[in-house]
Design a protein around this nucleic acid. Sequence first.
DNA 1: CTGTCAAGACGGATCGTCTCGTCTCGCTTC
DNA 2: GAAGCGAGACGAGACGATCCGTCTTGACAG
Lengths: 201, 201
Amino acid sequence: MTAQHGTAPGTRRRSEASRRAILTAAFELVGEVGYAKLSIEGIAARAGVGKQTIYRWWPSKGAVLFDAFLMLSEGTGDSPALPDTGDLEADLKAVLRATVAELNSPRYDEPMRALSTEILHDPALAAAYAERLDGPMKELKKQRLRSAQRAGQLSGDLDLDVAIEMLWGPLLNRWLQRSGPLTPEYADAVVETALNGLRPR
Amino acid sequence: MTAQHGTAPGTRRRSEASRRAILTAAFELVGEVGYAKLSIEGIAARAGVGKQTIYRWWPSKGAVLFDAFLMLSEGTGDSPALPDTGDLEADLKAVLRATVAELNSPRYDEPMRALSTEILHDPALAAAYAERLDGPMKELKKQRLRSAQRAGQLSGDLDLDVAIEMLWGPLLNRWLQRSGPLTPEYADAVVETALNGLRPR
DNA sequence: CTGTCAAGACGGATCGTCTCGTCTCGCTTC
DNA sequence: GAAGCGAGACGAGACGATCCGTCTTGACAG
């Protein structure tokens, strides 16, 4: 699992209980003490586990955090598709507002900031993130945009990757840098501006 | 200086030589050993300075890094305004391509990632960044966009903050997450897509 | 004489490695 | 299929190293 981490030795005898305890402990701890004070020793203690059990299965603190998110996202069963009511603007606003709500949620704020930090400094982890966590979600977004494209609501020669990053990039950035209030109204403004473009119509 | 850091005690006797040595050492060191291995002890040793001299004037590693950037940006004399040839699309492409080049530059990559990390976890530092480093640059961008607005090249009721984040957000995000190649062509695509909007015209 | 400086000692925290003795699993043997 | 065996993961924690942030020293400058 975890792309390249977490399954090195003979996996047969691995304790699933310890694995889960470590991942939950990591997620909870980072939310409580913050990224700076998150230590492997702390995770091991909280999980009731020897340090070696962590070092045996994960190459870095970031990899543990990553797997913790992976476990969570598998728990919530990966919503099969984005809403498609035919009203692209309304659907996009709903989804971006949900993103805003998640980014603002105290439960996820610190853990996501911690994971972002690790991704920021570890290209291998960034690749794993792109493949396992961001990738599937991005595919859902593309599906919705393709559907809109078929309905003639989006420009036919649109690069969907660019479109997605133009919609979500501003939110992510405002969250990361705290460069302004991250509100549902902001999400709406981004959707409207992106759809209509900066030029007068 | 530095908004709230760096000038606490009686500033009169402060050694400018030590200050500069510390900031240059910090910037160079983080580029060499990476953010994870950047230590105050290392900075002090490289700068030929006592640790206390750092702890006396800066509250955190992030504040040192921030001041290092501040020193650099003051060195390059804050370009007075963005190009304004009348061709908005060309001007924006030129500026975004310059941003791409800077983000891709090996000299700045690690230091900027380190500063981003500190900003990510320190709201006070984020505020200082917004005020002292990002703010002035953002004002220049707004000036250029206002000029275009007057020329009727941009929608009159445009929220310029949203516009700016829609242009730069995708670049920043792709750099942070390494979610794709950060090329001049990508910058061009962002500009074109943002100006025209996602809808067919 | 007061405050900054370079240098570095200090206790505490965490790192990553290692060594224990225990426990669990899967295979063999009867 | 029950009993025994061996490999490997397990919890626990000792270990030297590094870095933290504070504190002390003596030199020096205003």
